[in-house]
Simulated assay, not measured.
Amino acid sequence: MLSIYTTENIVTSIFQDSDNRYDAWYDFITKLRPTMNVLLNEDTDYEENDYNPVYMFEKDYDIDIEPEFLDEVGENAYLSLVMSLAPDVINDPHAIFLLDIDESQAKIISEKYGVICHSFNSSPSSNPIFQEGIEKNVEKKEKGRGWHELLPVDAVSPSNSLVFVDRYLFSKDSDGITGQDGINNAYEVLNRILPAKLGVDYHILFVFDASTLSIHSGDTFENIAKQLNKLVVRLARPYNIIMESVSIDHNDMNYDETHNRRILSNYFIVRVDRSLKAFRPTHSLYSQSMFLDWGASKGIIHSKRSDVPAKALGKYIKEVKIAIGQLKKSVGQVPFAKNGEILPIKDISHRFIC
């Protein structure tokens, strides 16, 4: 699911690294086997050189390599467009750009597109994909707990897309916990994750079960969708936010796959035991464990005996895509809204789905 965009020179440095400087990248590639889009050198005869490091990665580890060749003027169109900050050039929301540029330029590209761009001259450990995860264990009605502990602003960037999966996020529970708590928690999470600036649209999708809403409290799918859209104004970001919502119920295929509560981003997963409507300003609402894991926060640099979380992230996103695909085939109207307006499910435009 994650993919790397880089050059032959960088792949060669990773493959032939005798000083162990790039072990993290080597392990990431060989363990996760991401799709690799590699810009080849002008004099490379890729298909005739069995000892080319790019080919050896492909052959020895069964990695999907998509070679790119220099064009007639000695430049590669795609990477040139990325580095020139051309609009709408990155269509892969899970792209990791590993380039021979300085840190300041990498930061500009990352902030522009909301994707990971890493200077190959920088230590791999400084890349957010490898940062340690966070685990919090909260007790019901425990004071002083909140999303600020699990989602520090400096630990959730970059991103340009989110999917919330929680059937009961806006349902009414015991102890006076209501759909409004779901709206409030959605705002807190979004306000912590959404970057301060971005050069592309930010895509958000809420997947929940509208049949669990409290009709007596005035909670309907349309009402929830409108309340979520109002959060766009509250968030006050200087870029466009596309807010989508879809209901999935027990009659739909893949309903069982939406049991676990989670938030999916381009590169990280948030998982909770009980509910994403986890807090009020003064205390926690449930006893539960909560986790933030980046795609390689385990299994590479940290917790090397663990699986790489990117595998789970890819699985969860695939399940959502399959569920949405089945809903598109449904007979009758599927509860779906974009920017507060009820629309046909075929109009969904979230990056992870389309």
Rank of each mutant, 00 (worst) to 15 (best):
K311L: 01
E319S: 10
L313P: 10
I317E: 12
I324Y: 08
I324T: 13
V320R: 11
V331N: 13
G314C: 09
K328N: 02
G314M: 07
A323D: 03
A310W: 10
V308T: 12
K311D: 00
A323C: 03
I324P: 15
K328I: 00
V334F: 02
I322T: 13
G325S: 10
D307H: 14
P335F: 10
G332D: 01
S330F: 01
K318Y: 06
G332Q: 01
K321V: 12
I324Q: 09
K329E: 05
K328E: 00
I322W: 09
A323S: 04
L313D: 07
Y316I: 04
K321P: 03
K321S: 07
L327I: 11
D307Y: 12
E319L: 08
K318L: 06
F336K: 04
K318Q: 08
D307I: 14
D307C: 10
G332W: 00
Q326P: 05
I317S: 13
F336I: 06
L313M: 05
S306G: 08
P335N: 15
G314I: 11
K311Y: 01
D307F: 09
V334C: 03
K315C: 05
A310Q: 13
V308C: 03
V334Y: 01
V320F: 04
A312D: 06
Y316D: 08
D307Q: 15
G332Y: 01
V320D: 08
K311F: 02
S306C: 09
S330Q: 08
G325C: 08
L313R: 11
K321H: 09
A312E: 05
K318A: 07
A337F: 00
K315W: 07
Q333V: 14
Q333E: 15
V320Q: 10
K329Y: 02
V331L: 10
S330H: 10
L313T: 12
K328D: 00
K311P: 00
P309L: 01
S330W: 01
Q326Y: 13
V334P: 02
K311H: 02
S306M: 09
L327F: 07
A323T: 11
Q326W: 08
A312Q: 12
I317K: 15
L327V: 12
K328L: 00
I322E: 08
K329A: 04
V320I: 13
K321Y: 06
K315D: 09
P309N: 04
Q326I: 09
P335Q: 13
R305S: 15
A310M: 12
P335R: 15
S306T: 13
I324D: 12
G314R: 14
E319A: 08
V308G: 05
L327D: 05
P309D: 02
V331E: 15
V334A: 02
A323E: 03
I322F: 06
Q333G: 06
V334G: 02
Q333N: 14
L313V: 09
G332F: 01
R305V: 15
P335S: 13
A310S: 14
L327Q: 13
L327K: 15
Y316H: 11
